[in-house]
C-alpha cells in the first residue's frame, strides 16, 4: 500500500530541518540577550570570518559521503598557501588572479596523492591521511623553517576589502557582504550541482553507501575516490587563499590543528562517518551553527572558560538529534520492508 506523504511530514524526517530549527532557536535566544546579534554588520562579519571553515567543510562533506575521511586538508591548505605566498611575495607578483589560481592545482596534486594511496593500499583513509598530514606538514616546516610571510603586493591587500554589497554604519564606516562569502556560496552551489546532477555525484553516494555493491554494479571506484580527494584538495587550496586574505599573514602553523572543527561541522550537518549520507545544505548549516555559537558566546558576555563547554554540549545535542532521526528512519524502513 502506498503511504500518503504530506510535505510537512517529509520535512520533519529530514535532518536539515532539525538543524535549521536549532539554528533558529539559538539565534532567537541570542537576539533577545543581545539585539546587536541580528544586525547585518554582525551577520556579514560572521559569514566572512567563517569562510575558510565553510569551504573546506564542503570538501570534507564530499569525502565523508564517499565513505572516506580526510584529515590532511589542513596540511594541504598550508602548503598551497605557503607556496602561493612565497611566490607572490618573493617575485612581487601584483596580480590577484595568480594568488587565487596558484593554490588550487597544488591542492589537487596533494589530494591526488591521498586518493592514490587510499585506493591502492586499501588502508583506512584515517590512517593514510594522518600520515600524509604529518609528511606534508613536516616537509613544509623543514623547508620553510617556519618563517612567516607578511609582505604582500597591494592587489593582495586590496582584494580582502572587496564587497558584493556595501553598506555604511552609523559611524560612516563601510561594511558589507564580503567577496569571500560570495566564493563560499558559489562553491556550495557547485558542490550541490555535482552531488545532485552529475553522474560522479551518484557514484560518490553509491560507493559510500556500499562499496562492494557499487563495484559489482560496475562503478569505477578508482576514478571516484581520486575525484573525491582531489576535490577536497582543490577546495583546501581555495580556502587557503581565503585564509591568507583574511589574516594577511601566512604562518605555517596557523591552520594545522583545526581538522576537528571542520569534521565536526560536516557531521553536525548530517554527514555520516560511515558514508553514503550528507547534504550541502546540512554542511552549510553545520558551519553556521558553529559560527553562531562562537559569535554568540562573546555577545552573551560569557567568560571564555565556558566557551568550550557550551560548544561541546551543543555538538553533542545536535549530533544526538540527527542520530535519533536516523534510528527512527531505519526502524520505519525495516518495518515497511518487513
Amino acid at each position: 500500500m502506498e503511504i500518503k506523504r504530506n510535505p510537512l511530514s517529509r520535512l520533519t524526517k529530514k535532518n536539515e530541518f532539525y538543524l535549521f530549527l536549532v539554528l533558529i532557536v539559538l539565534s532567537t535566544f541570542l537576539a533577545i540577550s543581545n539585539p546587536k546579534f541580528l544586525r547585518l554588520e554582525n551577520i556579514f562579519d560572521l559569514l566572512r570570518n567563517n569562510t575558510f571553515l565553510g569551504i573546506v567543510a564542503l570538501g570534507e562533506l564530499v569525502v565523508l559521503i564517499s565513505g572516506g575521511i580526510d584529515v590532511s586538508f589542513t596540511a594541504i591548505a598550508t602548503i598551497a598557501q605557503y607556496i602561493m605566498g612565497f611566490i607572490i611575495s618573493t617575485y612581487y607578483i601584483d596580480n590577484i588572479l595568480v594568488a587565487i589560481l596558484l593554490p588550487i592545482p597544488i591542492g589537487i596534486a596533494l589530494g591526488a596523492i591521498n586518493g592514490l594511496l587510499v585506493y591502492y593500499t586499501r588502508v583506512h583513509p584515517v590512517i593514510i591521511t594522518i600520515s600524509t598530514l604529518n609528511a606534508f606538514y613536516g616537509l613544509l616546516i623543514f623547508l620553510s623553517k617556519g618563517t612567516w610571510i607578511y609582505n604582500f603586493p597591494p592587489s593582495f591587500r586590496r582584494f580582502a576589502q572587496l564587497k558584493l554589497i556595501t553598506l555604511v554604519n552609523e559611524r560612516g564606516i563601510k561594511y558589507g557582504l564580503s567577496i569571500f562569502t560570495g566564493i563560499w556560496i558559489v562553491v556550495a552551489i557547485i558542490t550541490w550541482l555535482i552531488l545532485k546532477y552529475f553522474p560522479i555525484g551518484r557514484k560518490i553516494y553509491a560507493i559510500g553507501g556500499n562499496l562492494e555493491a557499487a563495484r559489482r554494479a560496475g562503478f569505477n571506484i578508482f576514478r571516484t575516490q581520486l575525484f573525491v580527494y582531489c576535490y577536497i584538495g582543490a577546495l583546501s587550496g581555495l580556502a587557503a587563499f581565503v585564509h591568507a586574505q583574511l589574516t594577511q599573514m601566512i604562518q605555517p602553523n596557523a591552520i594545522v590543528g583545526r581538522e576537528l572543527d571542520v569534521i565536526a561541522a560536516a557531521i553536525l550537518g548530517g554527514a555520516s562517518v560511515f558514508g553514503g549520507s550528507g547534504s550541502v545544505a546540512g554542511a552549510v548549516m553545520g558551519v553556521l551553527l558553529i559560527a553562531v555559537i562562537k559569535n554568540g558566546l562573546i555577545l552573551m558576555k560569557l567568560p571564555a572558560y565556558w566557551h568550550q563547554v557550551v560548544m561541546g554540549a551543543i555538538i553533542i545535542i545536535a549530533a544526538s538529534i540527527s542520530a535519533l532521526q536516523r534510528k527512527i528512519k531505519a526502524k520505519r524502513e525495516s518495518v515497511s520492508v518487513g
Binding site: N34, K36, R39, E41, N42, D45, N49, F52, H243, L246, T247, Q248, M249, Q251, A254, K294, N295, I298, L299, K301, A304, H307
Partner: peptide
C-alpha cells in the same frame, strides 16, 4: 580573557565580536 592570541584569524574574529558587543 579570551584564549585567541596564538592565531591572527581567531584574534581578529574575537575583537570584531567584542566591538559589536
Amino acid at each position: 580573557r579570551l584564549p585567541t592570541a596564538e592565531s591572527v584569524a581567531d584574534s581578529r574574529a574575537a575583537v570584531l565580536d567584542l566591538i559589536t558587543t
